[in-house]
Design a protein around this nucleic acid. Structure first.
Lengths: 146, 146
DNA sequence: AACTATTATATAGTACGCTAGATAAACCGG
DNA sequence: CCGGTTTATCTAGCGTACTATATAATAGTT
């Protein structure tokens, strides 16, 4: 009776479980590289986004990264406490908060960028496979509107 | 001047960001189906695992799902509070805690199983594509040992 | 039986990630 | 310029997830 009645129902068969496991492993793979520069994985994504274009408002960062305001606000506060970003009200529109890189944040730019290369190496997948997987997941996460 | 100097560094180009986004969207897709039966997404995974084989020890569940003891213990306590599982010390080895389904937990089995079909439909991907993606991610999350 | 090591689980602290509700500035029709 | 709506952000609370540490039972050794 410990035999599963319907093997197709196994957790391991679920696409959701595969994505869940991959996300966890991805974060764990980054940790040893991010710990020395005192960044968590979501903080790392925010820094990458700021290196691409800064300053940005809180809302722009949230939209670009798919993070909720209730997630990104405390995250940015922690980045501010660790000295990597600054936050100030936009004088033009005081509803907005402008996030910018500090000298400290800029100083670790090369190290932050280097992390992605180390990850790609650790993945042990070909460049082509990685690109294909990335595009498949991206299409899933951001499907075309109906 | 808004052109990034190094397009390969963009967050959107990162495989890690693609996995991160897909995991978030996956959890959000499950929410409307899981809310009516008062389950969170990780709790849903635990229930699936228990329907496959119960009773199980805390350690067995954690290994099967890739969850840490610090994650799964409070999760199981919440499932116990909501009446879906029971927890008791193993009389054979009192270090272990045995987790089992309650009548309440068994009663929602068909509903829980039905969720995965609804997700597959909502994904708008072919069965073959889903299987291929699942296997790719599974290989990534559980690579062959060195 | 006492000592030590190992194993299984629990607890505490930090950091997401979500939702709901609050706050305050900007906009807009009359 | 006045009141209502919209927009941008913040706050609070719950549920994961992780790390490090603690507890407690079992197993092995002497």
């Amino acid at each position: 009776m410990s035999e599963p009645k319907n093997a197709s129902r196994l957790v391991r068969k679920q696409i959701s479980f595969a994505v869940y496991g991959a996300a966890g492993r991805m974060a764990r793979m980054h940790k040893p590289f991010l710990d020395p520069i005192s960044l968590t994985f979501p903080q790392y994504l925010v820094m990458l986004e700021l290196y691409t274009d800064a300053p940005r408002t809180v809302g722009e960062l949230g939209t670009a990264l798919g993070m909720d305001t209730g997630t990104i606000t405390p995250l940015l506060k922690r980045l501010q406490v660790s000295g990597k970003v600054s936050r100030m009200r936009d004088p033009e529109d005081e509803r907005r908060v402008i996030v910018d890189l500090t000298p400290t944040g800029l100083a670790i730019q090369e190290e932050v960028w280097g992390v992605s290369e180390k990850i790609k190496t650790a993945c042990q997948m070909t460049e082509g496979d990685l690109t294909a997987l990335r595009d498949t997941l991206h299409n899933f996460a951001h499907p075309a509107k109906a």
